[in-house]
Amino acid sequence: MNLFRLFGDMSHLASILLLLYKIQTTRSVRGLSFKTQALYVTVFVTRYLDLFYDYVSLYNSVMKTFFITSSCYVLYLMKKKYRPTNDPSIDTFRVEYLLGPCVLLSLIFNYRFTFAEILWSFSIFLESVAILPQLFMLQRTGEAEAITTHYLAALGAYRALYIPNWIYRYWMEDQVDPIAVTAGIVQTALYVDFFYVYFTKVLQGQRFELPA
């Protein structure tokens, strides 16, 4: 475990805590895409099935369990507890356009043609695009609460930090994971526009607002 990887995981953890904090303090899920959150549950459940047959480390198991339970809890908050604050009419991204290609890609690109490996590949590809409904919603509404943008920034930082982690692993451990690296670079690239506005506006104390 190198520092890039550790900081990446901590950033991921922080993003979920920020998300829960936003929901609890504003008592609202306004501005959040239910579709993106549902995709994350799909990502975590399909990838972390190995919890049941492959032990890596206590750290690994604890984190996986946390990501599965917290993402399911967020869905519960959005669909039950704070349902009136959820507005599906602006969450209009067509998720089937993401799921279809991800199924196809995972059947073509996988490390072994087994059910578990195909699911793992699928989860990697799906994670790379799972944020799109959320970014699409942000684009549509054109503005967001600061706390929501901090959540997205932490999530984007997590993906960005995995890239130097892979470079480190390539040089120091002679290890490459072409599927994870390719999908990870795509995923990070999706945040570029968001980060530009985040750095130039939110971190300067201004509201997150997109030009009309």
Binding site: S57, K64, Y111, W120, Y162
Partner: peptide
């Protein structure tokens, strides 16, 4: 190994 991927990552 590379054919297994980075399964220790999250």
């Amino acid at each position: 190994g590379a054919e297994e991927g980075h399964k220790d990552e999250l």
